[in-house]
């Protein structure tokens, strides 16, 4: 198992995602001899997990069953321990495409936060790219590095414990793309520019507040960035349901009675019809943040 390459079977030391049922999952560090408690009973790692194929059904001690899934950055995003506010898949997908990430890309990121985006970046830039991620909170930077090791992606990433606004990204002229998710991104724009390749590249800033966007756009413009665009993407979930719509009783229809041969079926038999449709969840995320993208043009030396 690795977050950048699939394996077929679960091995000692893997991180697996236990699927407990509708939208309910939990990550498990697989360890010989260890046990995991679920609402369906105990999962014994040595017998129930190790050597089993990813995606197979595991019966727990109380007779209930779960599926064990191979980790992916998307599953990790919905299962990771939150140490900060995190980026979700909808924004991540947009960022990945708009930053033009692909295998071999060199990317700078700040802050690392809980590593939700970092894992997705690593998946996309592997096996030949590299991520330089900067986190000013020491404990968080240590914790995330530990996770990168557990997820076997640490060879693709350098974690730096510093302040991107003050000290930049620790690299110069190497990045194809820079991502900013910090409270005052405009203060890091010049560092972003310095970190990027002379031939140019793409940059993105994520901010929840429009005032931040305003300042960041000005900074991008001042630093000579081009094609500055701000967008917002929202996920809309459609829950599939069969709904039953009652039919009102219109009373006897005199015109229908003119034809005596027609057998009149009482309307009560068709008192409702079934419709397969979708409904929106009652509450949805109405805002995550604004995404501002820009292109750094080639800089003459």
């Amino acid at each position: 198992m690795s977050f950048v390459e699939y394996s077929d079977c679960i091995q000692d030391g893997d991180v697996a995602i236990v699927y407990l049922g509708h939208e309910s999952m939990t990550p498990v560090k697989v360890k010989r001899g260890a046990q995991t408690q679920t609402r369906y009973g105990v999962i014994r790692h040595s017998t129930d997990l190790i050597g089993q194929r990813y995606g197979s059904k595991v019966t727990c001690s109380k007779g209930g069953w779960v599926y064990v899934l191979h980790p992916t950055p998307e599953l990790w995003t919905v299962n990771l321990p939150h140490r900060t506010q995190i980026l979700y898949t909808t924004d991540i997908a947009t960022i990945t495409m708009m930053l033009e990430l692909k295998p071999g890309s060199v990317v700078c990121e700040s802050g690392t936060g809980s590593g939700s985006l970092s894992h997705a970046i690593l998946r996309t830039i592997a096996p030949t790219g590299h991520l330089h991620t900067v986190e000013f909170h020491q404990q968080r930077s240590e914790k995330v590095l530990e996770e990168f090791k557990e997820h076997r992606v640490d060879h693709l990433v350098t974690v730096r414990n510093q302040d991107a606004c003050k000290d930049g990204f620790g690299v110069t002229g190497v990045a194809d793309a820079v991502f900013l998710d910090i409270p005052s991104p405009w203060e890091a724009v010049r560092h972003a520019k310095a970190a990027m390749k002379k031939s140019g590249g793409r940059v993105c800033s994520f901010s929840p507040c429009i005032e931040q966007v305003q300042k960041t756009c000005e900074a991008f413009s001042d630093q000579g960035f081009e094609d500055i665009t701000s967008i917002e993407v929202l996920l809309r979930v459609h829950d599939v349901r069969t709904v039953y719509l009652p039919l009102p009783d219109f009373g006897p229809d005199p015109s229908a009675q003119i034809q005596p041969d027609s057998t009149i079926t009482p309307p009560q038999n068709h008192a409702s019809i079934a419709v397969k449709t979708t409904i929106p969840p009652r509450d949805v995320q109405g805002h995550t943040g604004y995404l501002t993208f820009a292109t750094k043009p080639r800089t003459q030396l």
């Binding site: 699927y19 939208e23 599926y67 899934l69 909808t90 429009i210 966007v213 305003q214 756009c217 000005e218 500055i228 665009t229 701000s230 967008i231 917002e232 993407v233 929202l234 996920l235 809309r236 979930v237 459609h238 829950d239 599939v240 979708t278 604004y290 501002t292």
Partner: peptide
């Protein structure tokens, strides 16, 4: 299959200019 999800996406562009955002 598990984790079935039916979705669509809402995309909005912004004009960001001093005092005209």
């Amino acid at each position: 299959t598990v984790n079935l999800k039916l979705t669509d996406y809402w995309l909005r562009h912004y004009q960001v200019l001093p005092n005209r955002t």
